[in-house]
Design a protein around this nucleic acid. Sequence first.
DNA 1: CTACAAGTGTAGCACTCGCTACAAACGACT
DNA 2: AGTCGTTTGTAGCGAGTGCTACACTTGTAG
Lengths: 174, 174
Amino acid sequence: MSPETLLPPMAAHVLEHGISGVSLRPLAKAAGTSDRMLIYHFGNRQGAIDALLEYLAKLYETGLDSSLPEQRAKNRRETVRQILDVTSTPQLQPFMRLWWEVVAASATGNETFRRSAAAIMGTLLDWLEAHMPEDDPDPRGGARLLLTLIEGSQLLDAVGRADIAEAGLAALEG
Amino acid sequence: MSPETLLPPMAAHVLEHGISGVSLRPLAKAAGTSDRMLIYHFGNRQGAIDALLEYLAKLYETGLDSSLPEQRAKNRRETVRQILDVTSTPQLQPFMRLWWEVVAASATGNETFRRSAAAIMGTLLDWLEAHMPEDDPDPRGGARLLLTLIEGSQLLDAVGRADIAEAGLAALEG
DNA sequence: CTACAAGTGTAGCACTCGCTACAAACGACT
DNA sequence: AGTCGTTTGTAGCGAGTGCTACACTTGTAG
């Protein structure tokens, strides 16, 4: 069984059980193989995690790309909504839970996780810049403002204070 | 040795090594005692973590309160700056690393962590509402907008994209 | 057919984990 | 002096950890 065949079921496992503290034996079982084989294919535990992270990031970005609407919104608030509506979807919740693990690991200085996180932020920023309202006076700065707001909203949602982000968004001009 | 005496060195340990995956023996060693005694005082590992979390939240809130400036800023951007300047201080970095662990645990549904996180957001929101610019047209909504921005900025900082938050903040009106 | 590399199963090592059983020391009170 | 509840040390259990040694099969190339 090749690593490529292994990755999808492994990804499903970490999406359900978390990635930062995942251990080899349950991970291998989820992929129908043994810890012995994971080490063989990925070198060591960290290698497996790195491969998983790369695979999941790709999976997330393509999934996001296909879910986000094509047309631009007519104001900034709606542009934010376009992203939040997609990322709050139930089937993306496992990815969001993973996201917080990635952020936490990034904050401790883990370079693999940080690269992954920075790349995802880059992707989102690109999408935002390309989907700012037609008449926006400052698409470049505006996109960065909105990305900051989006991440803050997702955080407040994660800790059960979505109400704050909701009211904050309502107070955004335009 | 009472639990109250134990908590400060234990808190120092988790501030350095993380709290979500902390194990009893190193934690006990940091406090000059044994795993045996931690179980005795806190019942079990979760009890120790809960007590630590409560202690650390209090510590953080009082530290923040004393570090934040008294007087109001003259515009929203400066209000945000007041908080970001404090939380980006080197000596608060361990608390920020802990914060991401708390958020990640909250996202997985851990109620202890979520309560703690929600309380901290409440404290911050209260401070913001009380420190909005004098002439702000919508202090209530504005404070919520700024809290969302602040959390987003901290996240982007954690993943090494502080540049995005910086530019986003610059694009904020007022 | 043979030789060799890639892949895989079994067993196990040395370690850490949370937690407990048991017993001893200790101080306060009668 | 004796009794009793609180606190502490020692030892260890059963489970899980990452990883390795060794033997074996399998597919492929000469």
